[in-house]
Each structure stands twice: as C-alpha cells, then as structure tokens.
Amino acid sequence: MLKKLVIVFFVLFGYSCYSQTAKLNEAAPNFTLKDSFGKVHSLSDFEGKIVVLEWINYECPFVKKHYNSKNMQNLQTKYTKKDIVWLAICSSAKNKQGNFSNDEINERSKKHGAKFTAYLIDEDGKVGKMYGAKTTPHMYVINKEGKLVYAGGIDDTRSADIDDIETAKNFITAALEELLAGKPVSIQSSKPYGCSVKY
C-alpha cells in the first residue's frame, strides 16, 4: 500500500513539475535535464544568477546562421565571462532532425567552439513545451530573482542570411546589458523565427 502511495506521489510530483507554463515576469518553471556529458543540471542550481536558455538544433539553417557566423558563440563567450549561465537545450525527439548521440553533440559543439555552460537534452520535449519553445533558435532570459524576463527571437531580422546579423537588433544583448546595469528589460518579447522544434 505504502509502495503504491509513493509511486502515485512521484507520478503526480513529476507531472506537476512539468505541467507549468512559462509566463513573463513570473518565476521561470524549474526543470532537471542531463547534459551531453551525462551531468544532471536543474534550473534551481543557478539560483541568484542570470540564465539564458537557447533552444538549439545544429541542423536547422537558422541555427547554422548564428553558429557559422560565430554570432552565438561570441554572445556565449561574452556573457558567461560575466557570470551569466547559458544553457543550450535540444528538444529534438529520437530519430528527428537535431537529435544526436552525446559524442556527436560534443564533437559538433567543439567544432563550432560553442561556449555555453551546458548542452541539455530534452528528448521527450517536456521542458520545451513547458517553455512554449516553437523555433530554433528560441531564446529566454531569466533574471537573478528567477523570473522570466525575455522570451522570443535572438534578433529582429527574420532570415537565414548571415549578412543580416550585422544590422539586426540583438534582443539578447539588449536584455542582458540592461540586467547587468541593474535595469528592467525594456523589450520583453518578440516573435521567434526559425525552424520548428522537432518534438
């Protein structure tokens, strides 16, 4: 009987953990995922820090735009040096585009010179759906108080063309600079653009 109760508790607990919906200016829903080296990370591990979530699929042309140009890696390098946590999350389901073995993820990340804190694997898509991630890339910023303060595109230029990066307004830079200066984020949402997340 006790065993059954324990099972029911954990099923309900597990469900409630992932049944929340991310909302702007509210506490960012917690999650726990393994990274590409097998290490477990929870959002709550980074309490008191600014956190960036980046939905990723290395095969998507829009992700390629930001990695082949080094735009994404430059942002990762700049802001992780400022004690900001950068979590790339892949919600591609098994046998879908962007779902790779850990070895291949690490090889691709190394080849790109990626500087994120961790590449997290969300193969069942629960975290992606909880955050309403629709595209790759789809970006989120969480402030030091743990509240979601930005959700949307990386910038304002909806294209797969590398040449557009230079003239685009980068919403992540803007949000992070404001947070680092102790200011509220002025542009809190934009329409993300890119490939669909391969749930």
Partner: peptide, 12 residues
C-alpha cells in the same frame, strides 16, 4: 526569391 522550404526539416 527568398523562401524557406519545410517538411520535417527546413531548407532555404
């Protein structure tokens, strides 16, 4: 012409 062609993957 600039378009994005998609099925279960996308190609510019």
């Amino acid at each position: 012409i600039e378009a994005l062609l998609c099925k279960y993957i996308c190609i510019p």
